[in-house]
Simulated assay, not measured.
Amino acid sequence: MTDQPQAVYGLLTPEATLHRLADQLAARFPGIFTRETIDRYVVESYTALARTSTVTTHLPVLTERFATERLTALAQAKGAIDSDVCETLFVCVHNAGRSQMAAALMALHGGDRVHVRSAGSQPMASIDDAVVAAMAEVGISLGEEFPKPLTDDVVRAADVVVTMGCGDACPVYPGKRYLDWQVRDPAGLSLGEVRAIRADIDTRVRALLAELHPAITPA
Rank of each mutant, 00 (worst) to 15 (best):
T13P: 00
A77K: 00
A96Y: 04
T56R: 14
A219Y: 01
A27G: 02
R204D: 01
L142R: 11
A27F: 10
T2N: 01
V162F: 15
V132H: 10
M106K: 09
E64P: 01
R20W: 14
A103Y: 01
P5D: 14
L208T: 10
V85D: 06
N95S: 12
A157C: 05
A133W: 03
Y41I: 05
A157K: 06
A133R: 13
F33W: 07
F33H: 13
I201T: 13
D112V: 09
D168Y: 04
S190H: 08
M1S: 03
Q76N: 12
T13A: 06
M135Q: 09
V155M: 00
L89C: 08
S118H: 10
M164F: 10
M101N: 00
R113D: 05
V93H: 13
V132G: 09
A104T: 05
E211G: 03
Q100R: 08
T57A: 05
K176M: 09
G192P: 06
R65F: 06
D23M: 02
S45K: 01
V155H: 04
V172A: 15
N95V: 04
A7I: 13
R156D: 12
I197C: 01
S126M: 14
L108T: 06
G167K: 10
V138Y: 11
P149N: 07
D152V: 15
D129S: 04
G79Y: 06
A107S: 13
R51K: 14
G143Y: 01
T37G: 02
F66W: 12
P218I: 08
L105W: 03
M135F: 08
Q6L: 15
E193D: 05
N95C: 06
D129N: 11
M1E: 09
A125R: 04
L62A: 09
G111F: 03
I201W: 07
A119Q: 06
P60E: 10
D128N: 15
H213D: 06
D200S: 07
G139V: 05
D180M: 02
H58A: 14
Q4K: 04
A107Y: 04
V116P: 11
L71E: 04
A107D: 12
L89D: 10
T68D: 05
R65Y: 02
L209R: 00
R70Y: 08
P149C: 10
R113I: 11
